Amino acid sequence: MMGISIWQLLIVLLIVVMLFGTKRLRGLGTDLGGAISGFRKSMSDGESAASTETVKHEPK
């Protein structure tokens, strides 16, 4: 079993940069980062809303 070496990864990275260009890759990274931060924000908003609902529905 052979693993992926650093040289193979560098060659793949070079081919990807040549195919798509740095401008398109930068835009893709920005979009991906925005999506991840939006997902994290919605998850934290959902957790705070769930904890608020739990407090409202506690029997006395």
Rank of each mutant, 00 (worst) to 15 (best):
I6D: 04
D31A: 12
S37E: 05
T52S: 06
I6W: 02
M1W: 08
G3L: 08
E47M: 09
F20S: 01
A49Y: 05
L25H: 07
A49V: 00
V12Q: 06
M43V: 05
Q8T: 02
I6T: 00
K60G: 04
L13W: 02
M1Q: 03
A35D: 01
K60W: 11
E47R: 09
G34H: 08
W7Q: 12
H57Q: 13
K56T: 01
L13R: 14
S5W: 05
K56F: 08
H57N: 15
I11W: 10
L14H: 01
L19R: 13
L9E: 06
M18N: 10
D31S: 02
F39I: 04
K41P: 00
F39C: 03
G27R: 09
M1Y: 12
G29Y: 13
D45G: 08
V16P: 00
L28H: 06
M2K: 11
G46Q: 14
A49E: 09
D45C: 05
G33Q: 04
I36W: 06
W7M: 11
E47L: 15
S5G: 09
G29R: 07
G46C: 14
G27V: 03
T22K: 13
T54S: 08
Q8Y: 03
K23A: 07
L9W: 12
F39E: 06
I4A: 02
R24L: 10
G33A: 04
A35N: 10
K60I: 05
L10V: 02
V17G: 01
G34L: 13
K23H: 07
T30G: 07
V17P: 00
L32D: 00
M1D: 09
F20W: 12
A35E: 11
L9T: 02
S48F: 15
D45P: 00
S48W: 05
V12K: 14
D31V: 00
V55R: 15
A50Q: 08
P59F: 06
K56H: 06
S51F: 08
A35W: 12
S44C: 04
I6S: 02
S5K: 01
L32S: 05
R26Q: 15
L13N: 05
L10C: 04
V17Q: 04
Q8W: 09
T52V: 01
T22F: 07
G27A: 09
Q8V: 08
F39K: 11
S42Y: 13
T52E: 07
S42M: 06
K60H: 05
L32T: 07
T22Q: 00
L13M: 07
T54F: 12
S5M: 04
T52Q: 14
T54D: 09
L14R: 08
I11N: 03
G29S: 14
T22G: 11
T30N: 02
L13D: 07
V16T: 13
G21T: 05
S44V: 13
G33H: 04
S44N: 10
R24T: 15
T54K: 10
I15S: 06
V55T: 07
S44Y: 15
M2T: 02
I15M: 08
L19M: 08
L13I: 05
G34F: 11
K41Y: 06
T22R: 01
L10Y: 11
L9N: 05
A49L: 10
P59E: 13
A35V: 04
P59Y: 00
G29I: 03
F20C: 01
I15W: 07
T54V: 01
H57K: 13
I36P: 01
S44F: 09
